[in-house]
Computed example of a mutant assay.
Amino acid sequence: MARHRIFSTAVASVYPHYVAKAERKGRSRREVDEVICWLTGYDEAGLADVIARQVDLETFFAQAPRVNPNAALITGVICGYRVEEIEDPLMQQIRWMDKLVDEVARGKKMTSILRSGTPGAPAGTSSPPPSD
């Protein structure tokens, strides 16, 4: 089976489109960076580095410091596909990133986008249940 051409596309090729989409809707590059870093574990310097080096999406995800364990909570439709039903792990990760950027552009709250349980809690965490 032929590999999908998106796998060899440079992150630097899609990143400006993500930022433009968010900015058209009044959101910022910082918010796009935040969701990408949340998903992949890259920090801002690491993200800037892979963009500058023209790293392809396959390598970007293969070398990601840590795909967020809460990424599996990302659901919905992007490009006509339900992200939770995509079987190819790399394609699913790419579509997760698309979905997160889409949610930023649609104006969702960051706590919702980052699948956090409590406003102000670190991304990917939730508050412990109250003790009796």
Results as ranks from 00 to 15, higher is better:
R30K: 15
S116H: 03
L39Q: 10
Q93I: 03
L100R: 02
E58F: 05
L73S: 11
F60M: 06
V67C: 10
L57Q: 08
A12L: 04
A105Q: 10
G117K: 00
H17P: 03
L90F: 12
T125V: 01
M97R: 05
K109L: 14
E44K: 12
W96T: 01
V35C: 08
G124T: 03
S13P: 00
L90G: 09
V67N: 05
K21F: 09
P128T: 10
Q93H: 15
C37A: 07
G41L: 04
A62W: 06
V35F: 09
S131D: 11
S116W: 00
E34P: 00
S131V: 12
S126V: 08
A20G: 10
L73T: 08
M110Y: 00
E84G: 02
K99Q: 13
D56S: 09
N68W: 06
F7A: 07
E103T: 09
D56V: 06
R115G: 03
A71Y: 04
P89T: 07
I94W: 05
R29W: 00
G120H: 07
K21M: 11
G117T: 02
A20M: 11
Q93R: 15
V55C: 06
D102M: 07
P128N: 08
Q54A: 15
K25Q: 15
P65I: 02
I78F: 12
C79T: 06
C37P: 04
V11M: 15
V55S: 09
R24K: 13
I74F: 00
L90N: 10
I36T: 04
R53Y: 02
L57C: 06
R27Q: 13
L90M: 12
